[in-house]
């Protein structure tokens, strides 16, 4: 008979204890933040400086060693280098990062001797088209950086909030939309023509 009543007592007491815990939470601060509308402080301040967000390339300090391209396990970085045969200057003509492929492992930025490629805190770069996620960091050929004794590029100020790469992505998207709009009527006409030809 004792186990029978013990079971009743322990059940009721354990429920009582559980209720006391849940009631105490009615007086305790919620731990969630209300992203993105009601943030107490901007999200960039809440993330740590080591946060591995979307990659940013500072092409002005790139020495063109291609280590990042080689270490990347999924080949999402594409670099082209060209050499002027007369002046023997080397140029960076292409530095593309496919963010849709990137898995934010940090192997590329870790090996960069000048910190030209680094992770920003920018992470919400969703687009409607996957192609728009290929960020092209070189618009016109850039002369490669050479190490100088008086300055260390590693100590320079970095754009950790990712404003530059964000603007770059927006610019690319706008450009693409413009070209798409121009192409639109051409496509329509050609479709009509094809139909007529079939008829």
């Amino acid at each position: 008979m004792t186990p029978y009543f013990n079971a009743v007592a322990t059940t009721l007491y354990s429920i009582f204890e559980g209720m006391a815990v849940t009631t105490s939470y009615l007086f305790r601060r919620p731990s969630t933040i209300q992203y993105p509308n009601k943030l107490e402080k901007p999200l960039e301040e809440q993330l740590s400086d080591r946060y591995r967000g979307i990659l940013q390339v500072d092409t002005s300090v790139c020495i063109g060693c291609r280590i990042c391209e080689k270490t990347c396990p999924i080949d999402c970085i594409a670099i082209n280098l060209e050499k002027n045969k007369e002046t023997k200057e080397r140029f960076l003509t292409r530095f593309d990062i496919d963010i849709s492929k990137c898995m934010f492992c940090g192997l590329c930025s870790e090996n960069c001797s000048t910190c030209a490629i680094y992770h920003t805190k920018f992470f919400n770069g969703a687009t409607q088209n996957v192609d728009e996620l290929v960020v092209r960091f070189v618009d016109s050929p850039i002369v490669l950086y050479k190490h100088r004794k008086d300055s260390d590029p590693k100590t320079r100020e970095k754009d950790l909030s990712g404003v530059i790469v964000k603007q770059k992505m927006v610019k690319q998207r706008m450009k693409k939309q413009k070209t798409a709009k121009q192409e639109m009527p051409v496509n329509k006409i050609s479709k009509h023509k094809i139909k007529e030809e079939i008829l």
Partner: peptide, 14 residues
């Protein structure tokens, strides 16, 4: 809303 506060959340408030 009550469930949210018990679970240290905020609940629907939009």
């Amino acid at each position: 809303r009550i469930a949210a506060r018990i679970q240290t959340r905020v609940g629907p408030n939009v």
